[in-house]
Design a protein around this nucleic acid. Structure first.
Length: 470
DNA sequence: TGAAATGTTGGGGCG
DNA sequence: ACGCCCCAACATTTC
């Protein structure tokens, strides 16, 4: 029995990896990663520089871990839909195994590959593993997807059985020697035309385990209290590991499952939110191009090049909004609270389509995940499934004062405001003139009350008319 | 997983 | 002493 275990970017681990675990019981295992030009053509790779860096590091780590177990990672270049069937045929494999993808293009790719493999009479086994509960497995009374998180979470705790994580194989059989000459190497970032960013989290399963341990030891206990604080390391910082599968969702679940208290409970709830987003996209693949609420399809977003540039460069004159933009480009990560404030600001204060922000975040986030990022942006814009109401508008000043009370988050990312004390740092326009003049921080590009009123007027006019038509 | 406007209450200053 | 007003402080409503 010869199994091709196809690693594909969202399962870069040897622990709790169902395809590998199952294959390890048979005689021959060929771990494969395909450098598909869909992601690895330089012009495509440059569209996701931070994720590419994390991915390449994780691949090296995976290759080392497989080598340690007696196997190795076989890297092949080409379009997956062609390469996988070709390898299956040339290597005479008995089956191909991989972890299931829940996003639309992954589903379509797998459908085509399954078809090609079927012609070769090679089974294509897709194992669950990206989410806690398989997308589509939780439905409401009438057999449809949940449209509200709370009932989903109730059904989740009632029905979802989350098996214990699988151990890493103790050893793996060596990769057969007769594989021909189609192998290549993991490319370097430089070869893809990407500048390394030394401020990113390091990729790989080992680094991920270190982050998990740090969170369990010192972050989890107080998580519910500190997770909203932008100035503290109060979050898990495991989002990129979930994205690339350097940690499996269910290993995180089990790491916190038995822990009592508000912190562990709040963290489990966040993991369920992640499942909710994935289930949602699985049911509604069109959400990557459409708002969930149809009345937003014709929403009169503006195209204001100046405002857009100021927003993504961190020059809006609103400290938390600008800190978020700069933290994103500098580190590939933004605190969740800052993401919400920045997203609300773009959609509501600047009346700019959430899709611009969504795309910008997908470019720079290390943890950029289609389901999570899309649901987050649609939530913020008010057009999503179980989104915040359209009339709920964050005030960047109040959000800053509440969740960055000393101003340390802003001071870290907006050094022009380093001299401003907590009293002024979230509303620098109100600070003494002398302080403002030497800071060189931009004036606010909108007046908050006026921008707020404008959004309410526009949204009320639009949503009022479209809902009465329906 | 909001904010702002509006409404209500009650203490205290004051004529 | 009393009523009136002011305005925190809190509650409710609205967007």
């Amino acid at each position: 029995m010869r199994t091709l275990v196809w690693f594909r970017g969202k399962d870069l681990r040897v622990t709790d990896h169902a395809p590998l675990h199952e294959a390890a019981a048979v005689v021959e295992v060929i771990p494969v990663f395909v450098l598909d030009p869909f992601f690895f053509a330089p012009e495509r790779a440059q569209e996701l520089p931070h994720r590419m860096q994390f991915l390449l590091e994780s691949l090296h780590s995976l290759a080392a871990n497989l080598a340690h177990l007696g196997s190795r990672l076989v890297v092949v270049s080409g379009r997956s839909v062609e390469v996988i069937p070709r390898l299956a045929e040339q290597w005479q494999v008995d089956r191909v195994a991989a972890q299931r993808w829940s996003e639309p293009f992954g589903i379509e790719r797998d459908r085509r590959i399954a078809k090609a493999l079927d012609r070769l009479r090679v089974p294509f086994d897709l194992h669950e593993g990206e989410t806690l509960a398989p997308p589509g497995s939780l439905l409401n009374q009438s057999g449809r997807m949940f449209g509200v998180f709370t009932p989903f979470a109730r059904a989740f705790s009632r029905e979802a059985f989350i098996a214990a994580p699988l151990p890493a194989p103790k050893s793996l059989p060596p990769v057969p020697a007769d594989l021909g000459r189609m192998e290549t190497q993991i490319p370097s970032l430089e070869a893809l035309g990407i500048q390394p960013n030394e401020r990113l989290q390091p990729g790989g399963e080992k680094a991920a385990r270190g982050r998990l341990k740090a969170f369990l030891d010192s972050g989890l206990e107080g998580y519910s209290d500190t997770r909203n604080r932008m100035d503290l390391e109060g979050t898990s910082r495991l989002s990129a590991d979930l994205k690339f599968g350097t940690l499996s969702a269910r290993s995180l679940w089990h790491a916190v499952a038995e822990r009592d208290g508000a912190g562990p409970r709040a963290y489990r709830n966040e993991l369920v939110w992640r499942d909710f987003a994935h289930h949602l996209l699985w049911h509604r693949p069109d959400l990557l191009t459409q708002p969930f609420r149809p009345e937003f399809q014709t929403f009169p977003w503006r195209e204001d090049a100046g405002a857009w540039t100021a927003w993504h460069d961190g020059q809006t004159g609103f400290p938390v909004v600008d800190a978020a933009a700069r933290q994103l480009q500098a580190t590939g990560f933004v605190h969740n609270r800052a993401r919400m404030v920045a997203a609300s600001f773009l959609a509501k204060q600047l009346l700019t389509s959430y899709q611009w922000g969504e795309a910008h975040y997908m470019k720079w986030l290390t943890d950029g995940d289609w389901a999570n990022n899309n649901s987050g942006w649609q939530w913020s814009a008010g057009c999503g499934c179980d989104a915040q109401p359209w009339f709920r508008i964050f005030n960047p000043v109040l959000q800053g004062e509440k969740f960055d009370p000393l101003g340390d988050y802003v001071r870290t990312w907006v050094p022009e405001l380093g001299d401003f004390d907590a009293k002024w740092i979230h509303q620098p326009w109100a600070a003494p003139a002398a302080l403002r003049q030497r800071s060189h921080y931009p004036e606010p590009i909108v007046d908050h009350p006026a921008a707020r009123a404008r959004f309410l007027t526009v949204a009320k006019a639009h949503l009022g008319s479209t809902t009465t038509q329906a």
